[in-house]
């Protein structure tokens, strides 16, 4: 009985750890991809803008919360800072702030693809540990 319980525990741990790693590694890309799919699913430009804005704001909020945690390392904090700056640029461009031309209504679908692709590429340059990425995704989910 004890052996069977221990075995089940090991299997559950195995599944949880691997699922956590996968969620941490891929969560950000999936998050922006989901937003892009929602943007393309609607025809109303104002709704498209709202979806994009909400996705940026929610992510920024999650990044801010994680960044302020004392448990986050200096390197992770620097990575989060860079990520936040990248995100802010996207938000500024969407609204036409800080010297950006406002993204036109006709370009919103393409812009949502740009966000996905740029974030996938930024992921190669911005170094944030898997544990911190997982924490960010959990907070984003909780912010729903």
């Amino acid at each position: 009985m004890l052996g069977r319980t221990a075995f089940r525990f090991i299997v559950i741990m195995f599944v949880v750890v691997y699922a956590g790693i996968a969620l941490g590694q891929d969560g950000l890309q999936k998050y922006f991809n989901d937003a892009a799919l929602k943007v393309k699913a609607t025809t109303d430009p104002s709704q498209k803008r709202e979806i994009l804005n909400t996705s940026f704001e929610k992510m920024s909020k999650a990044l801010g919360k994680v960044q302020s945690s004392p448990l986050v390392s200096k390197d992770d904090r620097a990575g989060i800072e860079l990520f936040k700056a990248t995100l802010q640029e996207k938000q500024d461009e969407l609204s036409g702030l800080n010297g950006y031309e406002r993204v036109s209504d006709e370009q919103l679908d393409a812009f949502s693809d740009y966000v996905v692709q740029d974030m996938e590429q930024a992921d190669q340059q911005i170094t944030i540990s898997v544990v911190v990425l997982l924490l960010i995704i959990i907070i984003v989910i909780l912010l729903v």
Partner: peptide
């Protein structure tokens, strides 16, 4: 490393 990407149709 992290090698996930999506196409414009959202496929991973």
């Amino acid at each position: 490393g992290g090698y996930l990407y999506h196409d414009v149709r959202g496929n991973a």
